[in-house]
């Protein structure tokens, strides 16, 4: 449903060179089509930003360019899902979760249609594009929508695994992903199950619970802290909803402190979800929520922002050391 895309065009080459993480998205979807799944893909004028041009090139008849009409795209995806096809629609997380919130709630989640919503460039990863393009509220908004599964994969391989696992998951899903430039965490493959956290190691002093783009820097901090003799644990909480409460409570039983790390407002997202579990269970573990502290992010290149908000490996490591003091 789209004109052919020239694979030699600068946009096509650039997306693969600059954001290799996003090629996992198209490749996983291509593989699903080749395996006979009735996948349909749509985007709203962002096929180069999210790399879905790669999918469009391979299966143009299964790709719909909706243009700049995000709300129309989400409602149409709901309509597509009623026919037995499985739609994946992608746009910036800020537009998907905020602009299309009602379409997601009413047309997709309430109607229990297996639409896969892909919010890319989440958090502050669009750097100097500014607040309109930052998504630091999406986890809180999506998490409050009943019957919606919310997933924040750590890297390309985990995203691919989650996309493939989604064909056996009948519920609507919100995938929160980064800008495709995240370093790989799971270079030896990953076993992905919705709602099943991945423990990277336990510790008696503190356990870091991270999601999405924050898993890689958290893991670097975790390794550095362990080398320095700290008894620290790390959990990749890729599914924000349904939350793996067992993993949270097990960590709280073992560690004195739980530190959540997310590229999101500390209100309502991963930190909020973990806080609810700990409080309801009467856990004595202390919780520290690390993320954006209920403010609008500054303008800067993304790496500068991660440093400023202490969401890079040294920042996370320093936050842990302060917590332990």
């Amino acid at each position: 449903m789209n004109g052919p895309v020239d694979p030699n065009s600068w946009q096509y080459r650039e997306i693969n060179a600059r954001a290799p993480g996003l090629s996992y998205l198209s490749d996983a979807l291509i593989e699903l089509v080749e395996d006979g799944h009735p996948i349909m893909v749509g985007t709203a004028d962002l096929q180069y930003s999210n790399g879905l041009v790669r999918f469009a090139q391979r299966f143009p008849e299964r790709f719909t360019q909706f243009g700049i009409s995000e709300q129309n795209m989400v409602s149409a995806a709901a309509g597509i899902a009623t026919t037995g096809a499985m739609p994946f629609v992608a746009t910036f997380a800020s537009f998907l979760a905020l602009l299309c919130c009602e379409q997601i709630r009413t047309d997709v989640a309430y109607s229990a249609l297996p639409v896969r919503l892909i919010g890319h460039h989440a958090g502050i990863s669009l750097g100097f594009y500014g607040t309109s393009h930052h998504a630091t509220e999406d986890l809180a908004i999506m998490r409050s929508i009943a019957d919606l599964t919310v997933v924040a994969p750590a890297d390309g391989p985990q995203l691919a695994a989650a996309i493939k696992a989604s064909v056996n998951h009948a519920r609507p899903i919100y995938f929160r992903i980064g800008r495709g430039q995240e370093p790989v965490v799971y270079d030896n493959g990953v076993d992905f199950q919705f709602g099943k956290a991945i423990a990277h190691g336990g510790g008696s002093e503190l356990t870091i619970i991270a999601c999405g783009q924050m898993v890689h820097p958290s893991r670097e901090a975790f390794h550095a802290l362990r080398s320095a003799g700290k008894s620290v644990g790390l959990i990749d909480m890729h599914t924000i909803k349904p939350l793996d409460t067992k993993a949270v409570l097990a960590a709280a039983a073992r560690s004195r402190i739980i530190l959540t790390v997310e590229e999101h407002n500390v209100l309502g997202g991963l930190g909020g979800a973990v806080a609810e579990v700990l409080a309801e269970a009467g856990s004595p573990a202390r919780l520290i929520r690390h993320g954006i502290r209920d403010e609008y992010s500054l303008i800067a290149p993304p790496t500068h922002l991660y440093r400023h908000y202490r969401l890079d490996a040294p920042g996370i490591e320093a936050t842990v050391i302060e917590a332990l003091d």
Partner: peptide, 12 residues
């Protein structure tokens, strides 16, 4: 929009 999706999905 929902109807459009049904029309497009029907093709697929």
């Amino acid at each position: 929009s929902g109807g459009l999706g049904m029309a497009l999905g029907g093709r697929a």
